[in-house]
């Protein structure tokens, strides 16, 4: 199982993700420069957090046109596993690999804090290490994490169990008070139709070592390892 972490100009969680995969999880991992056009050697591609291309135009919009994304789209469409974290989630939405969009937080503030998220679906390649309904502590750090999709799309996401993570309280209640950004249905992470692409706003790579306050993010990387 080999992981690839894409590096866009402005990515800033690429090193964290690489570090966790290599040193904590013990997986094979390589960086993928945004001009790369061959992804044959990888089993999982991760689009990391950051501010790719300075968030110009719209978050994720310019990264979507980088050479590597043409290959990521092909890779994803042929069933390859793709994980987009924070800005990576935004890129996946702009690329049309996931439905909906992430708009400015409803309170207009950049939020950098720990949140609780509930595992709404643990029958996925990305979440199988967790219990169904398990509450995870992970940090968020974003200004545009307010998930939006039209009613029809939401109905499909709900009906096909494609909502994987939802913001919740410590005891697992998905309530408006625990929504840090205004996301519809407290959505923190969703899958594509074929369930081989996950986009999420919280940062599992920043919650993968005890010394950093939480190891709850490790389950995502371990779930992916179990795929091999």
């Amino acid at each position: 199982m080999k992981f690839g972490v894409v590096v866009f100009p402005g990515s800033n969680c690429d090193h964290d993700t690489y570090h966790v995969l290599k040193k904590v999880v013990g997986a094979k991992v390589e960086y993928i420069w945004h001009k790369e056009t061959t992804l044959n050697f990888f089993d999982v591609i991760i689009l990391p957090g950051g501010f790719s291309y300075g968030d110009y135009l719209r978050v994720g919009a310019v990264a979507r046109f980088s050479p590597v994304m043409r290959e990521v789209i092909k890779f994803a469409n042929s069933g390859g596993l793709v994980l987009g974290i924070c800005n990576g989630f935004q890129v996946l939405l702009e690329a049309g690999l996931l439905p909906g969009s992430l708009i400015t937080n409803d309170h207009l503030r950049f939020r950098c804090q720990d949140v609780y998220i509930k595992v709404a679906n643990n029958k996925t390649c990305f979440s199988r290490s967790y219990e169904s309904g398990q509450v995870l502590k992970m940090p968020i750090a974003h200004y545009s994490g307010n998930y939006f999709a039209d009613k029809e799309t939401l109905k499909i996401l709900e009906g096909t169990e494609r909502i994987v993570f939802q913001y919740c309280s410590l005891d697992g209640n998905v309530i408006p008070e625990e929504n840090p950004n205004g996301s519809i249905l407290n959505i923190a992470g969703i899958l594509n139709e074929n369930k081989n692409i996950l986009g999420m706003m919280p940062h599992p790579e920043r919650a993968a070592e005890k010394i950093l306050g939480s190891e709850d993010g490790l389950g995502i990387f371990n779930s992916l390892l179990r795929e091999s």
Binding site: I103, T104, N105, D106, H107, L108, N146, F148, G182
Partner: peptide, 10 residues
């Protein structure tokens, strides 16, 4: 119908 919080604040 799309929330435009910046516009609302302005």
């Amino acid at each position: 119908g799309i929330l435009d919080p910046e516009a609302k604040t302005i």
